[in-house]
Design a protein around this nucleic acid. Structure first.
Length: 256
DNA sequence: ATGGCTGTTCTTAACAGA
């Protein structure tokens, strides 16, 4: 089974990239963030023509998440149940017995800002919810754009980013607390190339100079980590014309 | 120190993203 996540930064603009990527990689499940589409504008027909069905929750201009899958999911959840949040950032369903949770964590803008406080509150609510979900689902995947680089290895210039949003200690601690519930960072289960990132700034030739951050993640419950055989960041779509600033990541799971 | 790209909007300037 192949599970993937990709912040597409506007599905309207990136739909051709997504369809090409689906055809080339054939994931069983692909989670998308920053679709930036209201539900009535979601391109279900184009995606269905590629052999995928979709669940989605979106809004105008900002945020929006979707889960594309070969098989239908059950027990859909939209948003973090205990969090009263109009922003469309969370979508979850069960696929092939696995509870998939697609998230788009708030960016946080700047350490100390109102949006940063919202990010930390949001992460605290996420932790409480994931604790509940793990108690109910041994097979669980939490994946998406976390907007947190967990470790110095995940930052092209840790000195420059020290204390900055996406790499500040409170954010990294919140990430570790989620892991502490019983999740593993699939990317670090395997040997990886040095300087592996999932996001590069559009400006200053960030991608060409590999000035990136690893802020998109696929976290696996212990049960699933045991059967995970690979985790790969695919930089191919980042090289296309008009790319998303994020690259997709994919894990492969063997038989239970 | 700043702004640097990109996408979106009751657009052509302002904002948010990371």
């Amino acid at each position: 089974m192949k599970l993937a996540t990709w912040n597409v930064n506007s599905l309207k603009v990136r739909l051709p990239h997504v369809l090409d990527w689906l055809a080339a990689n054939q994931p069983d499940v692909l989670c998308l963030q920053e679709t930036k589409l209201q539900d009535e504008n979601f391109p279900i027909a184009e995606i269905a023509a590629s052999g995928y069905q979709t669940i989605y929750t979106g809004q105008r201009t900002y945020n929006g998440v979707a889960v594309l899958s070969k098989q239908p999911g059950i027990e859909l959840v939209t948003g973090i149940p205990a969090l009263d949040d109009p922003q469309k950032r969370v979508l979850s369903a069960i696929y092939d017995d696995i509870r998939i949770i697609c998230i788009y964590v708030p960016n946080g803008e700047k350490v100390g800002s109102e949006k940063y406080q919202y990010k930390l509150r949001w992460l605290a609510a996420l932790k409480d919810w994931i604790r509940d979900m793990l108690a109910r689902h041994e097979k669980l995947v939490l994946l998406g754009d976390f907007n947190i680089a967990p470790d110095e290895r995940d930052v092209h210039d840790p000195k420059l980013w020290e204390g900055q949003v996406l790499f500040s200690l409170p954010e990294r601690e919140a990430f570790q607390e989620v892991l502490g519930l019983g999740l593993l960072d699939s990317f670090r289960l395997f040997e990886q190339p040095e300087k592996s990132y999932t996001w590069w700034d559009y400006r200053m030739m960030g991608f060409r100079r590999n000035m990136g951050l690893r802020i998109d993640h696929i976290l696996l419950s212990r049960e699933l980590a045991k059967i995970c055989t690979a985790c790969v960041i695919d930089k191919t779509p980042r090289k296309l014309e008009r790319p998303s600033d994020h690259a997709p990541i994919m894990v492969e799971l063997g038989k239970l």
